[in-house]
Design a protein around this nucleic acid. Structure first.
Length: 248
DNA sequence: AATGTCTGCAACCGCGCTTGT
DNA sequence: GACAAGCGCGGTTGCAGACAT
């Protein structure tokens, strides 16, 4: 449709942004296909919607994701898979596109790392239980003394990602059962992460409460139950585990 | 300084779902 | 129920700037 009509493509100009913003201010979100008619913009409805949702919409956060947001993304991706828009609902001010891009650049690319190759070799030799024990022992030893610098952070993500690879050997479409079974393994490094965000900051509180304003994603509670069962037997409540999962 | 490569991000595309006629 | 239009989502691409050689 759009291409037949010869819609403009490519980067948006300031003037186009202004026209689109004025339109949405007057008419609200939706009716995207009417934007061209009302504003004179030579952009498809799809293009207008995307520009608004990902760039112009008020309340969008700009700049780097915080470590807390990174952790939430990783957690939710483990549960939900590539449901970027669903994940975005738990990160106020962040868009699905942003999260998707972030995932691809910060997690996906680690797939072929040396670390991953080593882990792949190991996968063929050990059981899940052995890996859990090994990771637990590691985290209980000297690893905790590292500061939360970039290198540590990168290693940490590598571990997380590699654990995912281990959990989903055929990867693409893990079942809910597979995901639930994987949770204890997933969390070894989270729970022993040397330095997770400071829970006393305003930023943390804002995010924490905003999270609780939303529904808990499907499967998350089971995930927490598994955590209490396998990893944190002394921490009985959902809130405790959630807290420790994301924030300790 | 010039060139090649990598990275991050904005934007596009195709598909499927929903809604209206 | 069939069809078309609108919309949202996930995957992919293109490009500018950063970085490496």
């Amino acid at each position: 449709m759009g291409s037949e009509r010869g819609w403009k493509k490519g980067p948006w100009t300031h003037e186009e942004d202004k026209l689109l913003t004025e339109y949405v201010t007057l008419h609200g979100e939706g009716r995207w296909s009417s934007v061209a008619k009302f504003t004179g913009l030579n952009r498809s409805g799809k293009s207008c919607r995307l520009r608004w949702v990902n760039y112009l919409r008020p309340g969008l956060k700009k700049g780097q994701l915080t470590p807390l947001e990174e952790g939430i993304i990783f957690e939710l991706h483990a549960i939900l898979g590539n449901k970027w828009s669903t994940i975005a609902r738990y990160l106020p001010g962040r868009t699905d596109n942003e999260i998707k891009n972030y995932w691809r650049t910060h997690f996906k690319k680690k797939e072929d790392s040396k670390h991953n190759k080593k882990l792949k070799e190991r996968r063929s030799k050990v059981t899940k239980e052995q890996v859990i024990m090994e990771d637990t022992n590691k985290s209980n030893n000297n690893e905790n003394t590292k500061s939360y610098d970039d290198e540590t952070k990168e290693n940490y993500y590598n571990d997380q990602h590699n654990n995912m690879g281990f959990i989903y050997p055929n990867n693409n479409n893990p079942t809910m059962l597979e995901q639930q079974q994987s949770f204890p393994l997933m969390h070894q490094d989270y729970l022993s992460s040397p330095s997770w965000p400071d829970t006393t900051t305003a930023d943390y509180h804002a995010l924490w409460f905003s999270l609780w304003d939303f529904d808990v994603p499907q499967g998350f509670e089971e995930h927490v139950n598994n955590l209490t069962k396998y990893v944190l037997p002394n921490q009985a409540t959902f809130g405790d585990v959630f807290h420790n999962t994301f924030l300790v």
